[in-house]
């Protein structure tokens, strides 16, 4: 079965990013497909490559990036939500005349249409949030 996953909350602040990760991992282990993971609202903060969580804590950006690499996951960060929250890749940095970017290469920035498209393409949309 084909799943789409939407994450509405920021990492560490809320369990949503963790729950979505555990769900995705379990789904992939069972041989299901994840069509897309869409990060929305504060969920976009998961994509920062600058986070340095304490050594004894999980690193959610890294966990997602590793899972994405193993399973070739499409991880999309909503551009509108990202702009509001100061999340930018290199293109966005240049486009908005900013002096830095912070998106981990495992993630890509794109529009909300990607969420709707995922809802259309997937058999189930799973929403994790607050």
């Amino acid at each position: 079965m084909k799943f789409a996953i939407q994450i509405n909350e920021g990492p560490y602040q809320h369990q949503a990013v963790d729950s979505a990760y555990q769900f995705a991992k379990a789904a992939l282990d069972k041989g299901h497909e994840i069509f897309r993971v869409f990060f929305y609202h504060d969920g976009v903060n998961t994509a920062t490559r600058l986070a340095v969580p304490p050594q004894d804590d999980r690193n959610l950006t890294k966990l997602w990036a590793e899972l994405a690499e193993q399973h070739n996951l499409d991880m999309v960060v909503c551009v509108a939500a990202a702009q509001r929250r100061g999340m930018a890749d290199e293109d966005e940095m240049k486009r908005n005349g900013k002096d830095a970017n912070n998106i981990h290469p495992a993630f890509r920035i794109s529009g909300l249409g990607q969420l709707i498209e995922a809802g259309i393409a997937a058999d189930r949309l799973m929403v994790f949030g607050d």
Binding site: F3, F23, K25, K30
Partner: peptide, 8 residues
Amino acid sequence: YAGFVDLA
């Protein structure tokens, strides 16, 4: 979590 996936 595997059971969660099955339910979905």
